[in-house]
């Protein structure tokens, strides 16, 4: 085993995703603590172009694995295991993204290593210590890995993106893919958030969440949106329930929005939602739970029942 850290970059349809550069930051921090090198692997797609982009400050070696075009978990598993064998890193890091969830647990299993999923902080002294959130984000836990080596997935948006020119060596890594172990085939992509309304274009959004309770109560926030001249958007549970179409969904799996004003009504502010709206200029939240994470990022807040406040707010706006 070496003291090195290996991170696996993520890209989709030709572009590296932001989390790849965040992985470089956390990987570098860990490698400084272990006293080892930071290796970055980029698997599939235009690996040479990606390697050039990934050659940022802090990276020691970029390994290019030129196999296939898009992400395929069977190929990523084989690549990660082969790279692990060649480099023997102490820690292997992947993003806690939808694709990270699709291969990192298998990599940990195949290597018989402990897995720390969805870390929001990582450090090494004689072993790996991580911070993870429990119960949504109500409790923060510290976990310790009781083994020399580990695999971890890291939450996006928790570390700054690495930048600045790098001096990494770029090395081609030859991988002979065992096709008999490739038992899944990616056949295409579907855009789901299409339609007549693009919430990403709106200057003012009124966004509704689980707190609205029943579908028939949606009419109340529709009236509020009208009174504000705003576009109506929603958090995931509303779209899951089929009350509003997918193109209205704000968050990780929906749209990322950056309006001037974002009014969150009955939204607790789960991390996946916040990822989609934290860039709004002014955030206003109405929620009954004073500890709801939405208040951590709100500029203005009302801790109250939305069924009391929203009708009064409509009246106040219409009295103008």
């Amino acid at each position: 085993m070496s003291d090195d850290v290996l991170v696996v970059a993520e890209h989709r349809r030709g572009s590296l995703r932001d989390v790849s550069f965040e992985l470089v930051t956390v990987g570098r921090e860990l490698a400084d603590e272990t006293g080892g090198d930071l290796h970055v692997a980029v698997v599939s797609g235009d690996v040479d172009a990606h390697a050039e982009s990934l050659n940022v400050e802090g990276v020691d070696v970029v390994h290019t694995v030129a196999v296939g075009e898009e992400f395929n978990h069977d190929v990523y598993l084989q690549a990660a295991v082969a790279l692990d064998e060649a480099l023997a890193p102490r820690y292997l890091l992947a993003p806690n993204s939808v694709n990270g969830l699709d291969y990192a647990p298998a990599v940990a299993g195949a290597l018989d290593r402990p897995l720390v999923p969805d870390a929001v902080a990582l450090s090494h002294d004689d072993g790996l210590t991580a911070t993870r959130e429990l119960y949504g984000s109500k409790v923060e836990s510290t976990v310790r890995v009781e083994a020399e080596r580990a695999v971890a997935t890291v939450r996006g948006g928790e570390w700054p993106a690495a930048e600045g020119p790098g001096e990494a060596a770029v090395e081609a890594f030859e991988l002979e893919v065992d096709e008999s172990l490739v038992r899944s085939r990616v056949t295409g992509f579907v855009e789901t958030a299409t339609g007549d309304v693009d919430i990403a274009d709106a200057d003012v959004l009124v966004s509704v969440g689980r707190g609205i309770g029943e579908e028939e109560n949606l009419e109340l926030v529709e009236r509020l949106a009208d009174a504000m001249g705003a576009t109506l958007s929603a958090s995931r549970p509303i779209v899951d329930s089929g009350w509003l179409p997918k193109n209205r969904q704000v968050g990780q799996s929906g749209k990322v929005v950056t309006p001037d004003v974002y009014l969150a009504v009955g939204i607790s502010g789960a991390v996946q939602h916040v990822a989609g709206m934290k860039g709004a200029d002014t955030i206003v939240a109405i929620n009954t739970d004073p500890n709801a994470p939405i208040f951590d990022i709100a500029d203005y807040g009302v801790v109250a029942d939305l069924f009391d406040v929203v009708p009064a707010l409509i009246d106040a706006l219409e009295a103008e």
């Binding site: 210590t129 984000s137 510290t142 976990v143 009781e146 208040f295 709100a298 500029d299």
Partner: peptide
Amino acid sequence: PSVVLTDVAEPESESDATLFE
């Protein structure tokens, strides 16, 4: 388990929102 829980904490509120009451 090879991953063990060593501590739990309530996250510090980072809220600096202006609250209306």
